[in-house]
């Protein structure tokens, strides 16, 4: 059984002109100890998927369909109070900007100890010892001194390490990391990725890694889900998706990334832009930009279907019944 199962998740934003469907039938699974990358361009719904799973959708956004199961139990139907118990304890979260995840008025020690004591029944002294241990684990030098520092006394990379230690403090089964390295410089980014990988291996924590950066995914993830306009376009092992993308959108995306040692005069260009939520075309949402479009794409919406070994893609060209010649 998978650790986390998301089935046909739908998220809507009610507006005066009717509801906007921001997530339209997202299905994915994360196994124990696995890193699932979720990649897509801004507005594809990747962060929204993460927020819906931990129950932190910003109103007026709300889940209007689908099921989310953690260790086999529904968590999308839990009350706010019950969900609070799951957050932090079972599912940890890391966000993009470490400064907004930390309270600037409290020392990082106080924030860590508070979090530990909310989830575990331990004395303040034991919690402090655990906090120091965690800070050491994420690579903060001299943790027994640094524990009494305030967030502003740390650099960006160090702050993100503190946020990671906060997410890990109750030993959660799953961490949702939303763009954890986007605000960091490249050399720091490499350090944080290496740290995240090491810790998850050691703690057997599963990670849902949300990012727009295919490079980060290639370095870190086991499997990857490519999102487009509120839906999963393709899902599969990361090596296969990077080397042999199936969905035309993924093919375009991979060709659009400039690579060192890859000499091309022009990059692959996907014409146009991702549709806005109120202008999603009928049929496959990618059809106006797709180089392989045919009639069926404009009429019917493709679900994820097998597209060769280790591959699932939401694209009619892989439809066994009505394949185009």
């Amino acid at each position: 059984m998978a650790l986390l199962e998301v089935e046909d998740l739908r998220v809507e934003f009610p507006t005066r002109r009717g509801a906007l469907l921001a997530l339209d039938g997202v299905s994915l699974e994360i196994n124990e100890g696995e890193v699932l990358g979720v990649v897509g361009e801004s507005g594809a719904g990747k962060s929204l998927t993460g927020a819906a799973i931990i129950g932190l959708l910003e109103p007026p956004g709300r889940v209007t369909g689908g099921k989310i199961r953690l260790e086999g139990h529904r968590i999308d139907t839990l009350s706010y109070e019950e969900m609070r118990n799951i957050r932090g304890k079972k599912i940890g979260a890391i966000f993009q900007d470490p400064l907004t995840s930390l309270n600037p008025l409290y020392t990082i020690g106080r924030q860590l100890i508070e979090t530990i004591r909310v989830h575990m029944d331990v004395s303040p002294e034991a919690a402090r010892a655990r906090a120091i241990e965690l800070l050491g684990e994420v690579g903060i030098p001299a943790p027994e001194r640094r524990i009494d520092s305030y967030p502003h006394e740390f650099s960006g990379g160090m702050r993100q390490r503190v946020v990671i230690s906060l997410a890990l403090c109750a030993n959660p089964r799953l961490i949702i990391a939303d763009e954890p390295t986007t605000a960091l410089d490249v050399s720091i980014q490499a350090q944080i990725i290496a740290l995240l990988k090491k810790l998850c291996r050691e703690h057997k924590t599963a990670v849902m890694l949300i990012t727009h950066d295919m490079g980060v995914i290639a370095e870190t993830a086991d499997r990857v889900a490519v999102m487009y306009a509120g839906r999963v376009a393709e899902i599969g092992p990361v090596k296969r998706v990077v080397k042999q993308p199936k969905h035309p959108y993924t093919v375009g995306l991979m060709g659009a990334i400039p690579m060192v040692g890859h000499d091309v005069e022009r990059l692959t260009q996907i014409e146009g832009a991702m549709p806005r939520l109120n202008e999603i075309p009928p049929g496959c949402s990618f059809n106006p930009r797709c180089p392989k479009v045919f009639d069926k794409c404009r009429m019917e919406r493709p679900e994820l279907m097998p597209a060769g070994r280790n591959a699932e893609a939401a694209c009619w060209q892989f439809d066994k019944g009505g394949r185009r010649g």
Partner: peptide, 24 residues
């Protein structure tokens, strides 16, 4: 050399990277 080391491995060669310690 440090900067080049940090380029993500999109070729999927499985090259193990050693992140360089320290910050600017």
């Amino acid at each position: 050399r440090l900067l080049l080391e940090t380029i993500p491995d999109l070729e999927m060669t499985g090259r193990e990277r050693e992140p360089v310690a320290g910050e600017v």
